[in-house]
Computed example of a mutant assay.
Amino acid sequence: MNGTKAEAWTEETRSVGSGRLAFIRTGGDRGAVLLVHGNSSCKEIFAHQISFLADRGYDVVAADLPGHGNSDDAPNPPDTYSFPGYARALSNLMEQLGVGAYHVVGWSLGGHIGLEMWSTLKAVRSLLITGTPPVRLSPDGAAEGFLPSATMDLAGKACFSEADVLAYGSAMLGTDIDRTSHLACCIARTHGEARRLMLQNGLAGIGQDEVVAVRECAKPLAIVQGKNDPFVNVSYLHRLTYKNLWLKNPTIVNGGHAPHWMQAVQFNNYLGEFIELTSGSGGII
Rank of each mutant, 00 (worst) to 15 (best):
I113S: 03
S91G: 08
D79M: 11
G145P: 01
H68L: 00
Y86C: 00
R136P: 02
L127K: 06
D79V: 13
P77D: 10
L109H: 07
L121H: 14
G110W: 03
A142S: 14
L115M: 07
D59T: 02
D64S: 15
P77S: 06
V61P: 10
H112R: 10
A87H: 02
H112E: 05
R125H: 06
I129M: 01
V105K: 12
P134T: 11
M94W: 10
G100I: 04
H112Y: 09
M94G: 00
G85V: 04
Y86I: 01
G69F: 04
D72I: 07
P139R: 12
P133T: 00
L109C: 12
A89K: 07
I129A: 00
F146Y: 03
P75E: 01
A123N: 14
I113K: 10
E144V: 06
L93R: 04
G98V: 03
A142C: 09
A87W: 03
Y81T: 00
L127Q: 07
L90V: 12
N76Y: 06
W118S: 00
I113L: 07
A63M: 12
Y81A: 00
M94Y: 12
L90Q: 14
V135Q: 08
G106F: 02
P77M: 04
G110Q: 09
V104C: 12
M94A: 01
R88S: 15
Q96K: 15
G111P: 06
K122M: 07
A63G: 13
A123R: 15
S138G: 09
K122S: 13
A142N: 11
A62Q: 05
R125C: 03
W107F: 10
A143F: 06
N92C: 07
G100Y: 08
Y102V: 01
Y102I: 02
G100S: 11
A87T: 02
I129Q: 02
Q96E: 14
S82M: 01
V105C: 02
H68E: 05
G100M: 10
S91D: 14
V60D: 13
D72E: 06
A87K: 00
E116R: 09
S138V: 08
P134M: 11
D79R: 09
A101W: 13
G114C: 02
T120L: 09
L128W: 00
P133C: 01
A143I: 07
R125W: 00
A63T: 13
V105G: 05
A62E: 02
N70F: 08
G145F: 00
G100R: 15
L127T: 05
G67T: 08
G110Y: 03
G100T: 10
